[in-house]
Design a protein around this nucleic acid. Structure first.
Lengths: 163, 163
DNA sequence: GCGAGTTGCTTGTGCCTACAACTAAGCGGG
DNA sequence: CCCGCTTAGTTGTAGGCACAAGCAACTCGC
């Protein structure tokens, strides 16, 4: 809205850019999810959760820390970890320092699963995004994404969002 | 994978761009959905469905055509239209030319609902995306999105993806 | 040390979506 | 005509996710 109460509509060129961008935002998650689901039986969120654990010291993180890294709510993460635990990819253990807390640890099977899934996932990212762009465009996309992230997540509580 | 079987990993700069872009793709749908849900009681998909109908001749489309415009599967659209029908925003009617087909029509209440929701939605798009970027970046984003779309939707069956 | 308030996590409930099976209607060859 | 195939749409089932309620454990002031 402008100060006189009328909305500020998008110009034609803005609208054209937005339309295409909105389509990408709508379609891309499905593409990433489908590939991982089909080839490795993991959702993209599963994969990302395992990846975060695989990079942590001792391959272990407290639930709260893992939720922050995956940009998830705690209830959501709790259920996902339960599922991964049933699959034997993650193990829960009580935290020694704070008995309220729970540690999630990547198991050996979990480590193998991440290693197995990574190449196909990276290939999908390349095929659908990186290799579709010129090197300059990749750089621009990074800068644009940073600018948008500043609006989406002003508190800046996400950091390691990765592939 | 490269031809020798080893995966082609991302370079540091590619990875940095991808990490940020992935975060945007993850967070943006939630932001758009939340605003519409909170202010208008609609999901983003609901809104988009109504918007597509509002632009169609007689504010009417066959289910299949509407599914194509919203980039949805027919089962998904069927349930969404059922919900919108219960809310009195859309009406179903049998199609005269093809008795297998069903027409979905925007009701007067539906028209009012779209008009009411549009300004707030556009404002959210502006705040979270357009106004975060320079005019040049908006143009770049459009070109980048087109390139990615070419990979995501080679058949090009989506067209009018809009705000 | 003890009671109020906070933090860490899990679980109940309900909505939304995908996948697949199902009904109904058009279409075409013999 | 009628039998098999295709197309249009709906619905059964299963599973993910959000929101809010619930429970357990920690902290801090008195």
């Amino acid at each position: 809205m402008t100060t006189d109460g009328t909305p500020r509509w998008l110009s034609d060129s803005e609208r054209a850019s937005w339309v295409r961008f909105a389509a990408v935002v709508e379609l891309l998650p499905g593409v990433l999810d489908s590939q991982l689901q089909r080839d490795d039986g993991l959702t993209h969120f599963d994969y990302f959760t395992l990846a975060m654990l695989s990079e942590a010291p001792d391959r272990t993180l407290r639930m709260t820390a893992l939720a922050a890294r995956t940009n998830a709510t705690l209830p959501r993460l709790s259920r996902v970890v339960s599922r991964l635990e049933e699959q034997g990819l993650v193990a829960r253990s009580p935290c020694a320092e704070d008995r309220r807390a729970t540690n999630a640890t990547l198991t050996a099977a979990g480590w193998i699963a991440v290693q197995a899934a990574a190449p196909g996932h990276v290939a999908t990212v390349r095929e659908s995004v990186i290799d579709a762009l010129t090197p300059d465009q990749v750089t621009q996309l990074g800068e644009i994404s940073s600018a948008i992230l500043g609006r989406l997540d002003p508190s800046g509580r996400l950091f390691a969002r990765e592939s």
